[in-house]
Design a protein around this nucleic acid. Sequence first.
DNA 1: ACAGGACCTGGACACTTGTCCAAGACATTT
DNA 2: AAATGTCTTGGACAAGTGTCCAGGTCCTGT
Lengths: 212, 212
Amino acid sequence: MAAQPSPPRALSRGRRDARGERRRAELLDAAIDLIGAQGIDGVTHRAVAAAAGVPAASTSYYFRSKDELIHEALRTLAEREIERLRARREALGDAVADLEETTEALAAWIEEQVTPAGRVAMLAQYQLQLEAARRPEAREILQAWKEGTDDLSETAMRSLGAPDVRTSGILLVCAIDGLRLRLLASGHAPLQGAELRGVLRALLVGLTAAQP
Amino acid sequence: MAAQPSPPRALSRGRRDARGERRRAELLDAAIDLIGAQGIDGVTHRAVAAAAGVPAASTSYYFRSKDELIHEALRTLAEREIERLRARREALGDAVADLEETTEALAAWIEEQVTPAGRVAMLAQYQLQLEAARRPEAREILQAWKEGTDDLSETAMRSLGAPDVRTSGILLVCAIDGLRLRLLASGHAPLQGAELRGVLRALLVGLTAAQP
DNA sequence: ACAGGACCTGGACACTTGTCCAAGACATTT
DNA sequence: AAATGTCTTGGACAAGTGTCCAGGTCCTGT
């Protein structure tokens, strides 16, 4: 029996090469796009490889299994979005804010996400939420994300002088989540620019005024 | 050439027999459960048949294709939920309502849906919404459903004396949708009985008070 | 130049899937 | 009881899937 060299397959952890890192990232990007465009079950080794423009076996080289590929893709997506949230939160700071500017910021934030480019990320996020309803591993990924949105939302409500920032923060997050889902599902935007701002202003006013 | 008899396969429309109707309904029930428990792609001919306790070929006999099976299942689910909504709406009538009773009704409505039994229907609904973001056929099914929820929601806001029932109605629906999704995704209920009622009361107060 | 490792990939395997068929079981009408 | 149309189902098929392997290529350090 020849001395068995350390098995070359299925490394996927402990990489060294920069090329490898890059290709791995490309595969994850392709997987995220696929999740948004086709749903989680649209993610197959062959589809991901084709979308990334690489041969089929690559995905098996960089990921131990399809589950790991999907998991890593969702984790990566969450990481990015959390970073975006953190940046916004940073930009907001602790300054007291006007109702109008907050409304405008929110509307812009939402409209930016309804962009074709943003759609993918949103769809992938909702996919993740449904996944979380079923699999605890996904719940873990979602946890940090949720903290990010809650934090940003609380900050916004605090800057508006809301009495109970926790409750109203959660409500704001949920309302926007529901709004975005509605925008997604109905295809055409049911709430245009001015009307959307009206709705958001009403929501903010309501949440700010409410006493627990 | 023998005279070809009318092809016996793929009827799926134009049934006569009552047995057939019953089995078809059982298959649809099984499919709906599967959608809730495993997602839309958990629906396979064999899985549906197994869940319904019938041989595998049955599903192909009653449905022209897997797509038709899924479509019919989603349609059936929507039909049922719309009927539930209509009944609620009926019960509400046009009476002026107390903030407390509306809060209580809403909370009960939500808590009823977080039941294991209700979870399946909720999950299936969100699955449908994501499907609608991708396929126009699903959008059609969702349309009637959305009208039902909006109608009920507007009625509730009107009975509370809200100034703009359309806007606040939509917001109420979206907020509750977001809340339910959060409940689903986080597994454990993050908003218990009393706290949930607090949040809902705040939301209703806010929406009622807001001036457009 | 060369060795060693990481990277890369064409091809193969077992398995699941959607769909179909042909033959039988059953009910109802004649 | 015979006929007729529906229901029922075991089995088969091609297509697609996850995963693996054996051998290749490329880069980096010496």
